[in-house]
């Protein structure tokens, strides 16, 4: 079964939905929506590389992973902002600031990659592990943070949207957690010794990746409906 095709389609829908959502809604959603949109980039870049001549470079692959890391950091920052708002009812900043700050961080990361030696396979593996580690632990933290937000806005129209986000982060945790497991123990190199673990981890990763894309797209459509 060609998981990656469906996965990319879902991420494409999720990315467009989240970016469109970030434009049409209040500032508080900007960081969250931009963070989810960046997943599209970090998913598309590695998938598209084999099909795009001239971009099969380690720097491009590294940037894909780094954007993945930035993605979870930005959306976590967004949920933190929403949590602070739900507790204090105070909010500041503007959308343009979020867009520019995110672009700034991406640009700075690119400069960092370009001024350093070309990343080899080991470096790329480390960068990938750093990305997945961030995803795994921030997913757990975000599930707890979103639970608290849901409690604070319990009977408001948006409250069920946060339940959907909790489901999304459970899929994220499974997706990135199983990838991290494979990477940390280098199970790909030990498939003969641990075939079940490896296949199970790959399957969980693929299914959770697919469900992540699906749930992100669904969540943003659901949010758009709640915030009509």
């Amino acid at each position: 079964m060609e998981w990656s095709l469906f996965t990319i389609i879902f991420w494409l829908i999720a990315g467009v939905a989240s970016f469109y959502f970030s434009l049409g809604n209040a500032r508080v959603w900007t960081s969250i929506a931009v963070g989810f949109f960046l997943i599209l980039l970090c998913e598309v870049i590695p998938t598209a590389m084999p099909y795009l001549p001239g971009v099969d470079m380690p720097q491009v692959e590294a940037m894909g992973y780094i954007i993945g890391t930035i993605s979870i950091l930005v959306m976590s920052h967004g949920f933190q902002e929403y949590y602070v708002f739900s507790r204090t009812l105070e909010f500041e900043g503007n959308k343009l600031g979020v867009y520019l700050a995110t672009l700034g961080v991406i640009a700075a990361s690119l400069v960092f990659i370009l001024i350093n030696p070309v990343p080899d396979a080991a470096t790329l593996r480390v960068i990938r592990i750093v990305e997945n580690t961030n995803w795994v632990f921030l997913s757990l933290i975000n599930i707890d943070l979103i639970r608290k937000i849901h409690f604070n806005v319990k009977d408001s129209p948006i409250s069920n949207g946060f339940v959907a986000f909790m489901v999304v982060f459970v899929f994220f945790f499974l997706w990135r957690g199983s990838e991290l497991y494979i990477q940390v123990y280098d199970l790909a190199a030990h498939t003969a010794e641990f075939p079940v673990r490896y296949r199970l981890s790959v399957m969980v990763s693929d299914v959770a990746n697919l469900l992540s894309g699906l749930s992100v797209a669904g969540t943003f459509f659901y949010l758009a409906r709640l915030l009509r």
Binding site: N25, A26, V28, F85, F91, P157, I158, L226, L227, R228
Partner: peptide
């Protein structure tokens, strides 16, 4: 109107 849009849609 601005603050409420963080938890509800414009119509609501």
């Amino acid at each position: 109107n601005k603050a409420a849009r963080l938890v509800a849609g414009p119509a609501k």
